[in-house]
Design a protein around this nucleic acid. Structure first.
Lengths: 191, 191
DNA sequence: CGATAAACCGGAACGTGTTCCGCTTGCAAG
DNA sequence: CTTGCAAGCGGAACACGTTCCGGTTTATCG
C-alpha cells in the first residue's frame, strides 16, 4: 500500500523557511517592538527574499496573525473544552460573562500585534479568530435568551473589545482593565 | 479704527487651493470611488503639488474627514440642538435610542469614506467626531441611570457602530440596517 | 510704494508594503 | 537514475503615502 500522507504536504524547504521567518519576526518584535516589524527587515534577518514572506503569510497582517496564533489556539480550546465557567458546564449567562472577560485579557495581552493586524487590514480579524468568537458567543446568547437576535447581538458585544478601542481607552484615557470589564457586565441584562 | 478680522486668516491663495483640492477630491470619489482617491491624483487634478495637500489636511485620512465634515456638522447640530427625540426635550432613554439609530444611518451613508479614514489611522476618529459622540452619549446615559459607568458604557455602545464592523455585516453577511438597529435596542436596558 | 518676514508652493526624494517573473529545487513517477 | 513539473525562491520593480527644502507669493508696516 502506498504511504498516503496528507495529499499536499508543505515542502521541506518551505517549512524550514516558515520557521526561520517566524523566529526572526518574533526576535525583531521582542527587541524593536511591533513598529520595527518591517517586511524587508524580517526577510533579511531570516535570510530569505521578501517574496517568500508574502507567499507564506499573504501580507503584513498575516504575519502578525501567525505570531499570535499559538496563544490563540490555547484560548480557543479553553472556551470550547476547558473547565467552567469558561468551558462547558456552567450556565450560559456565566459563560458569556467569563468569555468576555477572558477575551478582554487575551486582547490586552497582545495588544500591539492585534492593533497592527487590525490596522493593516480591518477585515482580517473577521474570518480569522473573530468568526470563532462570534460563533461561540452567539451560541451562548441563544441558550441564554432564545428570543434575542443572537447573531447581531454577539457582534455588538464583541465590538467594544476591538484592539483599537481598548488601546485608546487604556493608554490615552487612563481607564483600567477592571473598569472595562465591569462596564461590560452592565451591558449584560441576559440571564 | 483698523479692520480687525481674525488675528491669523488663511491666505487667499491657500484658501483657493483648499477649495480646488476639495472639489477635485469630491469629483474623484464620485467617479472612481474611495479607492481612487490617491494623494498624487488629487494633487494633479487640483493643479497643485502634493506638499500642498499635506499642509492643508495633514494626511490621507485628514482629507477624507474634510470630505465628510459638512454632513458631520449637520448631524452634530441635530442631536445637540435639533427637535426631539434626537435633540433636547425627550426623555434620556428615547434620546439614546434615537441617537444610536441616527448614528447608524449616518455611518452607513458615508461608509466608504469612514472606512478609509478609520483604516488609515485607527485613532483619528477618536479626537475628531468620536469624542463628540462619546460626550453626548455619556451625558445621556448619566441622566438615564446615574449609577452606571457612563464613560465606558458609552464607548461600548458606540463600538458596534464602527464603520469596519458595519461594512462587514452589511456587505459580507447580508444583515440589514434595520436588523442592526433592533439588535441595538436589545442592548439597551437603560430606562 | 518698497522692504521684510512669514506663509505657502511644487515636486523630487524617500520609506515601506506589495507584486512580478525568470530561475532553482524538492519530489514522485517511470 | 532520469525526467517532468509543480512549488518555491530571491530580489528588482512598482505603487503610494509622506517628508523635505529651495524658490515664490502674500500680507503688513514704515
Amino acid at each position: 500500500m502506498e504511504a498516503v500522507t496528507n495529499p499536499r504536504r508543505e515542502r521541506v524547504d518551505a517549512a524550514r523557511n516558515r520557521a526561520k521567518i517566524l523566529a526572526a519576526a518574533a526576535e525583531i518584535v521582542s527587541v524593536h517592538g511591533v513598529e520595527g516589524l518591517a517586511m524587508a527587515e524580517v526577510a533579511a534577518a531570516a535570510g530569505v527574499g521578501v517574496g517568500t514572506l508574502y507567499r507564506r503569510f499573504g501580507d503584513r497582517s498575516g504575519l502578525a496573525y501567525a505570531l499570535i496564533d499559538e496563544r490563540e489556539r490555547e484560548f480557543q480550546s479553553a472556551f470550547i473544552q476547558g473547565p467552567p465557567p469558561l468551558g462547558p458546564g456552567a450556565d450560559p449567562a456565566s459563560r458569556i460573562r467569563a468569555f468576555l472577560h477572558a477575551l478582554t485579557d487575551r486582547t490586552v495581552e497582545q495588544l500591539d500585534l492585534l492593533l497592527m493586524a487590525e490596522t493593516a487590514s480591518p477585515f482580517a480579524r473577521f474570518g480569522g479568530a473573530y468568526d470563532g468568537y462570534h460563533a461561540h458567543l452567539s451560541m451562548l446568547i441563544g441558550q441564554a435568551d432564545p428570543t434575542a437576535d443572537a447573531y447581531v447581538l454577539a457582534d455588538q458585544l464583541l465590538a467594544p473589545l476591538a484592539a483599537s478601542l481598548l488601546a485608546h481607552r487604556l493608554r490615552t484615557c487612563g481607564v483600567t482593565v477592571d473598569r472595562v470589564k465591569s462596564a461590560l457586565d452592565q451591558l449584560l441584562p441576559l440571564r
